[in-house]
Simulated scan of single mutants.
Amino acid sequence: MSLAPYVRILARGQGRARPFTLDEAREAMTLMLREDADPEALGAILMLLRLRGETAEDIAGFTSAARASLPEWQGMRPALDWPSYAAGRTRGLPWFLLSAKLVAGGGVPVLLHGWNSHQQGRASVRDALAPLGIPNAATMAEAGALLQSHGIAYLPLEVLSPRLMHLLRLRDKFGLRSCVNTVLRMLNPGAAPAAVQGVFHPSYRELQADAGRLLGDARLSVLKGGGGEFEHHPAKDIAVYGLRDGESWTGFTGRSIAEHRRLAEDELEPQALSALWAGELDDAFARATVLGTAGLALEAAGVTKEGALMAEDLWARRRAITSV
């Protein structure tokens, strides 16, 4: 089937063009994920949506088709989905990886998934995984097994879905972000009952929360975080949008420290991640970032309403419950 009818919906002209319905978006993405999808029509759809702006129906429909295209999950399912697709150009070290590790140590299996090899700087997310003892899954089946043995795993996008990887990499041709970036944050490949998502632009918080509600997701927290990742700046009280029991929800992060430091000004080397975990580095700001992010993730997962207190307790016991 041709993508042309879906291009016409978006591009008929002033007064005639309209947004996709959720079903139309699902049908369009199903075709876009096929190897024989017409590249010109595919590019037209992505750039028309870029120009017009994404709707919750667009993202929910696209995500529904993307989820349906994935192989069946095998092994242990995650309790918390944690996507990581930010470019990382405006941030320092990925402290949120320590937060995810802390949450996993608290008995909440965490699936990290993403594509971060393009990051420029001192430490990409993938570079930091091995030193932190976070295993990198070579297959989807291995991801489930790693959750069973380690409580945490990272699943690269090119392993998860080569076709979605292809759609994402069209950014190199367009020179512009597309809605695929948003869809990947919503993907939740392990069908975890809860998810956390980071965004760079504040408007996407409500968009992704609304799309999650249309998809029937139960628990979700969307945060304007460090460089677009789910990572809380501890000196800022930031609004969080999402879902609780499938209903729209809004909260605030609160502040835990007075010191203000821009993430891009972080002068620490990548080894600081392991050093902070081992207690060899005393950095109050970095520790507050890790604990604040972990607390928000624990609350999103439904483990406790007092996520900050649980994160403090896990941090104090971290070397007993998990190792680097």
Rank of each mutant, 00 (worst) to 15 (best):
321 I>E: 08
105 G>N: 05
231 E>M: 12
309 L>Q: 15
10 L>H: 09
30 T>I: 00
253 T>A: 07
9 I>C: 06
99 S>C: 04
31 L>Y: 09
241 Y>C: 09
234 P>E: 04
235 A>V: 00
300 A>Y: 09
318 R>P: 07
64 S>V: 04
231 E>G: 13
45 I>A: 01
133 G>I: 05
222 V>K: 07
10 L>S: 03
165 M>H: 13
33 L>M: 12
123 A>M: 13
309 L>G: 09
285 F>C: 01
103 V>W: 05
4 A>S: 15
141 A>D: 13
129 L>E: 06
217 D>F: 14
323 S>H: 11
179 C>E: 07
54 E>A: 15
124 S>G: 13
184 L>G: 11
219 R>N: 14
206 E>A: 14
293 T>C: 01
61 G>W: 07
277 W>M: 02
154 Y>L: 00
309 L>N: 10
102 L>W: 02
197 Q>M: 15
141 A>E: 14
173 K>I: 15
70 L>K: 04
146 L>F: 03
174 F>T: 10
235 A>E: 10
318 R>D: 00
210 D>S: 14
300 A>T: 14
136 N>I: 03
35 E>I: 06
129 L>M: 06
78 P>F: 07
175 G>A: 03
285 F>V: 04
57 E>L: 02
142 E>H: 05
250 T>G: 02
320 A>C: 04
324 V>R: 11
295 G>P: 02
85 Y>G: 10
324 V>C: 10
319 R>T: 13
226 G>C: 12
264 A>Q: 11
224 K>T: 15
127 D>V: 04
59 I>R: 02
278 A>L: 13
200 F>V: 01
192 A>T: 06
306 E>N: 14
183 V>Y: 05
69 S>L: 05
138 A>D: 03
148 Q>E: 15
133 G>T: 08
263 L>M: 12
322 T>R: 14
253 T>K: 08
239 A>W: 11
107 G>I: 12
93 L>A: 02
34 R>S: 14
57 E>T: 06
94 P>A: 08
237 D>R: 09
1 M>F: 01
67 R>Q: 15
290 V>N: 02
78 P>H: 10
14 Q>S: 14
271 Q>R: 14
217 D>A: 12
35 E>N: 10
214 L>A: 12
27 E>C: 08
73 W>N: 02
12 R>D: 12
220 L>I: 02
230 F>G: 02
14 Q>Y: 11
81 D>L: 06
15 G>M: 03
80 L>P: 12
133 G>W: 06
249 W>K: 07
261 R>T: 04
135 P>W: 10
14 Q>L: 13
305 K>H: 11
60 A>W: 05
90 T>V: 03
211 A>T: 04
49 L>C: 04
315 W>T: 05
112 L>Q: 03
153 A>W: 00
226 G>K: 01
309 L>H: 10
132 L>Q: 06
11 A>Q: 13
28 A>L: 10
311 A>L: 09
